[in-house]
């Protein structure tokens, strides 16, 4: 099972249900929605698809998020240079 973690502890701020992350290595700004930001905050520690999906399910009771959607989101974060596979 693949494990994911933040590439570095970049500066992030939470404003109006959106998260803004400053990547000071690549000089980029990435904006996430609230659930995305929640996932990002969990990724300070290593996470699997399963652990993230379960945590989101516990936090957002009315929202059904599948592992597939989490995986797609993590792929996007990797493309943005914010997340990597944990070694």
């Amino acid at each position: 099972m693949a494990r994911y973690v933040q590439k570095s502890s970049y500066e992030s701020t939470h404003l109006d249900n959106e998260w803004i992350i400053l990547n000071t290595d690549d000089y980029t700004v990435t904006k996430l929605n609230d659930i995305g930001g929640f996932c990002w905050s969990l990724l300070e520690a290593e996470q699997t698809l399963e652990s993230l999906t379960q945590a989101v399910g516990r936090e957002y009771l009315e929202t059904k998020v599948s592992e597939r959607e989490i995986e797609e989101f993590l792929s996007q974060l990797m493309e943005c240079g914010l997340v990597k596979y944990a070694v």
Partner: peptide, 22 residues
Amino acid sequence: NTRPMVLSHQPIRFETAHSWNK
């Protein structure tokens, strides 16, 4: 907010980024 999403991703203008460090 029905699933985690990247809303936007964009580079910072060089002049701005440069002033972070120097």
